[in-house]
Design a protein around this nucleic acid. Structure first.
Lengths: 255, 255
DNA sequence: CGTAAACTATTACGTTGCGTTAGGGTCAAT
DNA sequence: ATTGACCCTAACGCAACGTAATAGTTTACG
C-alpha cells in the first residue's frame, strides 16, 4: 500500500490530483489509515494507469469515469466518436493557422506600403524604430528584393512628394466619406476605391487584388490603422474595408 | 448609440458576453444612461470587430486586451509566437489521433482473439451481442477475410476445445505468477510469454509481434481484461504487459 | 524519548469565458 | 396604470486542478 506522495512519484501526477480524483470518485484509494491517510493498492495503481491512458487521448475525467465504471460500456464507439472530435479540432486549428498566416503576410506587406502616412503625425524616432523592426522581419519572411524595391522608391521621395501623397489620400478619404450614406457599392465610392488602389501602385507597390483585400482587412483589424482612418470619420475604416472587398469581388468576377 | 441587445444582434455575441467584456475592461461602452443602461458607439462596434478577429485566432481575452490597449504593441511578434503555439497544439492533436487509431486497431484485432475466454464467465446473450457488434465493426475496418478466418476457426471449437484452451491459459498464468517476483525479464516468465503467443497463434490467429504488443497494452488499458486477469493475481495484468513488451523487444532485436 | 522535519488532511479561493438563473428596476405602448 | 420587452447587478456553475492556509501525524535524528 502506497501513500499519496509515493503514488505521485510513481505515476507522475500531483498529490492534489490524487485528492481531486478521490473527491470526484474517479480513483478512491482502497485503504485508509485510522488517521485518515489514503492508502493505494496495486490495483489502484493499475486503474491510475488506465486513467492516464485515456487522459492522454484527451478524454474528460467524466468520460473516463464512465468508461471505467461500466466495463461493458462501448469503448470502441466512444473512441471512434472521440477521434472524430479530435479531427474536427485539428481542422479548426488548421484554419486558425491559415488565418494567422494570412494576417502575418498582410502585415508584412501592408506595413511597408502604409507606414509612411500611417505614422506621419507621430514622433520621428518611433517611426524609425518601427520601420527598422518591420523592415527586417519583412525581409526575412517576404523576400529581400520586393522589400528593397519599395524602400528604394519611398526613400527617394521628397517632403513635397509626401505632401502630395498625403493630399491625395485625404482627397480620396473625403470622396469615400461623401458616399458613405449610399453604401460601399455606390459608384462614386467604387471609383475612389479604384483610384486609391492606383495611387498605391503609383507610389509604393504593385497593389494586386490579393494585397488590396489584405490591406482592407488591416484597416479594421489593426487598431492603429482604424484609429488613424476613423479620425476623418467614425466608421470610415469599416466602410472602406467593405468597399475594397466589394471592389475586389467585382474585379475578380470580371476577370 | 446602441443598447446591449442591439449590439448582441449586430455582432453575434451574447448580452452576457458584453457584460463580461465590460467588467474585465475589454470593451467598455462609450456612454451610459442615467438609469445605467450601456450605450455603445460605432467605435465600440469596431473595437468589437477587432476583438472577434483576434478571438478567432484563439488569443485569450487578456492578450487581446493588451494588443488593443497598446497599439504600439508588437502584434506581429505576438502573432508569430501564437502561431508557434497553434502549431504545437496541432502536433499534440496529431499524436493523440495516432494513439486513438492505434488503440482502435488493437481493439478490433484483440477482441477477436481474446473475446472468448474474456467473457467465459458472463451471460451468453451478452457475449453474443458483443460479438456481433465487434464483428461488424471489425469487418468494416479490418477486412472481411481475416475476421472470417478467425470466426471460422473458433466457431468450430467444441466445449472440450474451449476447456482445453482455458486450461492452457490458466497454466500459463500460473507460470507467470510464479515468476513475478523475479521480474518480467526472468527466463521462465519469458518462456511462458512465448508459449502464450504460440497458443494464440494455434487457437485463434497468427499473432505477429505487433499484434502481441497491442494485446499486452490491452491487458492494462482495458479494465475488462485487467479485471479478468488480475483476479488470478493482483498486478498480473501490468506484469504480463511488461513481460510481453520485453519479449517483443527481444524478438525484434534478434531479427 | 523528545522534537523538528517531512508528510498528510481538509478547506477554500483562483483560473478562463462565459451560461444561467434570480431578483429587481426601466421604458414604451396600450 | 398595467403589461411586456428590455436593462441592471449579483452570484453560482463548469473543468481540472494550482496554490495557499491551517492543522494533525509520522518519522528520523540526536
Amino acid at each position: 500500500m502506497y501513500k499519496v506522495k509515493e503514488v505521485a512519484a510513481i505515476t507522475g501526477v500531483s498529490v492534489r490530483t490524487l485528492h481531486h480524483y478521490d473527491r470526484i470518485g474517479l480513483l478512491e484509494p482502497e485503504g485508509i489509515t485510522s488517521s485518515g491517510y489514503r492508502l493505494y493498492s496495486e490495483r489502484d495503481l493499475e486503474r491510475m494507469q488506465q486513467i492516464l491512458f485515456f487522459k492522454e487521448m484527451d478524454l474528460s475525467l467524466q468520460e473516463i469515469k464512465e468508461i471505467l465504471e461500466r466495463p461493458d460500456f462501448d469503448r470502441h464507439d466512444t473512441l471512434r466518436k472521440h477521434k472524430d472530435l479530435l479531427l474536427a479540432k485539428k481542422k479548426r486549428l488548421e484554419e486558425m493557422i491559415q488565418t494567422v498566416d494570412k494576417t502575418l503576410r498582410s502585415m508584412e506587406r501592408g506595413y511597408k506600403m502604409a507606414d509612411k502616412d500611417l505614422f506621419k503625425g507621430f514622433d520621428m524616432t518611433e517611426i524609425e524604430e518601427h520601420q527598422k523592426k518591420y523592415s527586417e522581419e519583412a525581409k526575412q519572411k517576404y523576400g529581400k528584393k520586393a522589400v528593397e524595391k519599395v524602400e528604394e522608391r519611398t526613400s527617394g521621395y521628397s517632403p513635397e512628394d509626401w505632401g502630395d501623397i498625403q493630399a491625395k489620400t485625404e482627397e480620396i478619404y473625403k470622396r469615400i466619406i461623401a458616399g458613405m450614406e449610399h453604401g460601399p457599392e455606390n459608384p462614386e465610392v467604387q471609383r475612389a476605391v479604384a483610384d486609391w488602389r492606383q495611387s498605391i501602385t503609383d507610389h509604393y507597390y504593385d497593389c494586386t487584388l490579393e494585397i488590396y483585400r489584405g490591406l482592407g482587412d488591416l484597416y479594421v483589424n489593426d487598431p492603429r490603422f482604424t484609429k488613424n482612418i476613423d479620425k476623418y470619420q467614425t466608421g470610415l475604416a469599416a466602410f472602406f474595408k467593405d468597399a475594397i472587398h466589394f471592389y475586389c469581388d467585382q474585379q475578380e468576377k470580371d476577370a
